[in-house]
Write a protein that binds this DNA or RNA. Structure first.
Ligand SMILES: [Mn+2]
Ligand SMILES: [Mn+2]
Ligand SMILES: [Mn+2]
Ligand SMILES: [Mn+2]
Lengths: 228, 228
DNA sequence: ATTATTTATTAGGTATACCTAATTTTTTGT
DNA sequence: ACAAAAAATTAGGTATACCTAATAAATAAT
């Protein structure tokens, strides 16, 4: 059976590999992401390699094997189902669920996950809009882009956020922006790319590019000029 | 903050101290109960002592301090709430919940426990009939005795079991005996003290003393002659 | 009261999961 | 091409949580 600690590494490697363009995760990136020191990660990678969960080629970075990827997707599944359960059933705010889910995700009981999944309404997406893999590791498809890529006049819907940190999420909550909110991009300020959006009945907010980059949306009109 | 590992020790010490007559728990008993070797437990007891959670006097056994007892009752509370949640909300059988609850009990979030408690119907007793301490460590009262202490003719109700092992619980389930079942003691066989009970509409079972000792009941008639 | 048995303690060892400091290797910038 | 910077690796250390084997102390049995 796979160890708790393995699961953390695999999830982290999966996230890094996926983020941005690159499929390679470097040791130092991984250490930074996991808040560990490089030597700690280094020695663990050797073990994960022996367990055939990753392939670690010097200078070529870290890659998940088939098995490793399957395990990674399984932890991600557990994590996101727990987040959804905590939010939908236990009424936690979307900014609180990540931390608790990190603890819950390491429990291994398929039967328990099945029940929690059903109690949560068989969700396809978690409270941050992230897709929940099915038991076979298949992710539901979504097409989404950062709000930052919008053109003026675009009307779009918030499908997710790329950041689980409570600071970011509480900030959005404060602005009254949540999942499935419909935004209309009123103005883009050339100076720094900040964007003014309108939503609900006349609510307004000016979002910095740093914020707009983390909000994932989908255009509501076909043939919208926004960069995907 | 209290460590996961501390919680296991405290719960175990609490259980041993309480079981049977004695208030002392000996090192070897504790080691046996926790399925660890005496030297392992010995070195840990020194730490628990330093943390002022227990008082360990050589040859006089292990006693919980006020703080230690409070912590013990808190783990027990978490354990039993999770068991109830798993049984009532997630529809696990009473024989499955203990193992999973052992893993869930170490998560520390009062808010989560509050929500799970409410979802489970604010229970006073867990699926094995064990009392759930409130937040202040106060246990609901119940008066109960082993079924084994019955006299012939006694009518009683099952309020709990003293054993969480799946073998025992599945055996009872098989016999169709569960919590709140009303039993009528038809006969006690002098040879070994086995007892024949009748319940539901004419269901019958002969229970060995070993089994009857683990089933906790309360007489339904006042002035019953059963030994408390 | 001795001996035998049980229980507690000490000594020393392993594995995991971390760390810092030092060194080597690779990559990058000029 | 070469120095500087960044990344990877090695060396050596700590703390926790376990273990076995050996010894000491306490308790029970004759
Ligand atoms: Mn998360
Ligand atoms: Mn999420
Ligand atoms: Mn239990
Ligand atoms: Mn129980």
């Amino acid at each position: 059976m796979i160890k708790t600690s393995d699961e953390k590494y695999l999830r982290a490697i999966y996230h890094i590999s996926l983020s941005e363009k690159h499929v390679k995760a470097s040791l130092s990136e991984l250490a930074y992401y996991m808040d560990l020191k490089p030597p700690t990660v280094f020695e663990r990678l050797k073990i994960l390699g022996d367990e055939k969960l990753i392939i670690y080629n010097k200078n070529k970075g870290i890659r998940l094997t088939k098995v490793g990827q399957k395990e990674a997707l399984n932890v991600i599944r557990k994590h996101r189902i727990w987040e959804t359960f905590l939010h939908k059933v236990c009424k936690f705010s979307w900014s609180e669920v990540h931390e608790l889910a990190e603890k819950l995700q390491n429990i291994n009981s398929e039967k328990l996950m099945d029940r929690i999944f059903v109690l949560s309404g068989e969700p396809k997406f978690d409270p941050h809009g992230d897709p929940i893999p099915d038991k076979w590791g298949v992710l539901p498809l979504t097409e989404r882009r950062p709000l930052l890529n919008s053109v003026e006049g675009c009307k779009c819907i918030v499908l997710g956020v790329n950041e689980d940190g409570p600071d970011f999420l509480n900030y959005l909550t404060d602005l009254k922006i949540g999942l499935n909110e419909k935004l209309s991009v009123e103005k883009i300020f050339p100076f720094d790319g900040s964007l003014k959006v309108r939503f609900r009945q006349g609510e307004m907010a000016v979002l910095s590019p740093k914020v707009a980059e983390q909000i994932m949306v989908s255009c509501m009109k076909a043939n919208c000029l926004c960069r995907q």
